[in-house]
Amino acid sequence: MELLMAIAIGTLFGAGLYLCLRRRTLQVVLGFALLGHAVNLLILNMGGIRHGQPPLVNPAAAGYADPLVQALILTAIVIGFGVTAFLLVLAYRAYQETGSDEVNSPRDKHP
């Protein structure tokens, strides 16, 4: 299971990084979304994977899953959501204003 997760994290990181290095803004936005998922999975993995166990200490259950990583990921998801929303609006406004959807448009040159 952990190997599978590691491969998934690696794939997400790779795909996200590739998209982040593209010139079009929408691809960059999607790249950051993928990177965010990769990091969230990484944190989940770092807490240790327990199959089918509750995230609280229950004397009746055999064990418990680490609840802290889930809290961390929840925080990260909320922040990521806000930033992605802002990024999308900014990309759209920049497109309206400059007529180009490239992150660094050729007209960017300074005097």
């Binding site: 982040c20 803004t25 960059v28 950051f32 990177l35 965010g36 990091v39 990484l42 944190i43 993995n45 770092m46 807490g47 802290l68 990583v69 961390l72 990260a76 922040i79 930033v83 802002f86 990024l87 900014l90 990309a91 406004r93 920049a94 204003e97 400059t98 992150v103 660094n104 448009s105 960017d108």
Partner: peptide, 30 residues
């Protein structure tokens, strides 16, 4: 227009930094 053009790379690069920070925090916790 200038602010919007400067905003995108600024945001993208800082977002990269934040992502790495989160990964580092995860590793430390692990």
């Amino acid at each position: 227009a200038r602010q919007l053009r400067a905003g995108l790379p600024f945001l993208a690069l800082n977002l990269t930094g934040s992502t790495l920070f989160l990964a580092a925090a995860g590793l430390i916790y692990g």
